[in-house]
Amino acid sequence: MRALTCTAFDEPETLTVTEQPTPGPGPGEVLIRVHAASVNYPDALMVQGKYQVRPPLPFTPGAEAAGTVETVGEGVTHLKVGQRVAAFTGTGAFATHLIAPAAATLPIPDDLDLNVAATLPLAYGTAMHALIDRGQLKAGETLLVLGAAGGVGLAAVMIGKALGARVIAAASTQEKLDLARAHGADEVINYTDSDLKAAVGELTGKKGVDVILDPVGDRWAESAFRAIAWGGRYLVIGFAGGEIPKLPLNLPLLKGASIVGVFWGEYARRDPRGNARHLIQLADWVQSGTLKPEISRAYTLQEAPQAMRDLLERRVTGKVIVTP
């Protein structure tokens, strides 16, 4: 098998493609021939040694993939050879073959595109868990999505609409805002050339927004929180903007608002049944056309370091994949 290999925590450009023996699955595992692997922000952070998880070296990055089962390990009964599946493994997906725990591997419908299936577990799973489980978003409420053209952001725009919310998308360029609007956003705000709090106030009649989904952090977090409604929920997803913000704690006090952490990977580990229900719903929405995942580019295995660099430099819209 061929795999992208990290031998030292460093920049993505130091990664190399190596030939390795194709492993066999152990008990409770399956071997997947990878058709597509999704590229996520944590992949690049992990390679740099900046993520909360530091796998032992050497390792192959890539958290999620879709493909077909080649071999089934002892004790696996719900999967079979030749079955089309999607899996979340945390690492190992940027390779031609992937060992995955059977418990983290789900069959996918025959008519669901494998490229799309590869993007669903982490980004769409995060947005689903955030909005439903952590944010308790209800039909008729208003949702503000920061970084609305990124992987998690664009997923949140579409899922928010599917749940019946009014969605305000915020992003840094007109191109990104146009993409968010094309995927269902009701209103858009360019937060690089306007006052985010004032713009939200104008769009909501100064009421504010009920739920804020923030995968960006950095300098926009406080102005976004100042635009939250009474009893609102601020969902902390990540810090793609660079800096981890420090919010004055008088703000949630004055608004009766909640700051809610969202760690999808740990949720998926602790509640695999709940996560599986979310992924089944996501697949149903994709098949019905309710969700239309945006894959802006496919990279080869050799180009995977560039994919991570593009993600770090915020040049990516929607999702990008590696096709080994």
Score class of each variant (00 low, 15 high):
G274Y: 10
T18P: 03
I244P: 01
R2C: 00
A229E: 05
A102G: 09
A127I: 10
I159G: 10
V200N: 00
V116G: 00
Y299I: 01
L203P: 05
S223F: 12
F59C: 04
P109N: 12
V116I: 15
N40V: 07
T192F: 06
R309F: 01
E64Q: 12
I99T: 03
V260F: 05
T91G: 01
K138I: 10
T22F: 00
G147P: 07
V34P: 06
D10A: 15
R315A: 10
T105P: 13
W220C: 07
V85Y: 05
A149I: 09
V116P: 11
A224V: 09
T173E: 04
E187S: 07
A3Y: 04
V152P: 03
G75R: 11
G24V: 11
G231N: 09
R166A: 01
P21G: 01
L312V: 12
I32G: 01
V286I: 09
R134P: 07
G26C: 10
P55W: 01
V145N: 08
T68R: 13
A240L: 05
T22H: 04
P25N: 07
E243K: 15
T60Q: 04
H78S: 15
A117H: 00
P58Y: 04
G75N: 13
V209E: 04
E11I: 14
E222K: 14
H183F: 00
V81W: 09
K207A: 10
G274N: 10
H183L: 06
G217Y: 07
G24Y: 08
A198Y: 06
I99W: 03
P56N: 15
R315C: 03
D10T: 15
G147F: 06
A155K: 08
I108K: 00
K206L: 07
A165L: 02
G242R: 08
L254N: 02
T119M: 11
V167A: 06
R84V: 08
N275S: 15
P101M: 04
T71W: 04
A185V: 04
G160K: 11
R134T: 09
G232A: 09
M1Q: 12
K197Q: 03
L131V: 13
R314G: 08
Q302A: 14
A104S: 13
L114C: 01
V260W: 07
L301E: 07
I295E: 01
I132H: 06
D111C: 13
D186A: 15
P61C: 09
A100T: 08
P42T: 12
L112P: 11
G242K: 12
E222G: 08
G217D: 02
I212W: 02
L98H: 01
A149V: 12
E303G: 09
I168W: 01
K319G: 00
W230T: 09
K292D: 10
A100S: 13
P121M: 06
F225I: 06
D43S: 12
K176N: 05
P21V: 10
R297I: 02
A180C: 05
T290W: 00
L311D: 07
V69T: 08
L253A: 14
Y299G: 00
F9R: 01
V116L: 12
V72G: 03
A182F: 09
L311V: 15
E313N: 09
V145L: 01
T68V: 13
R309D: 07
G26E: 05
A93P: 14
L57M: 13
P42R: 05
L282F: 03
V34S: 02
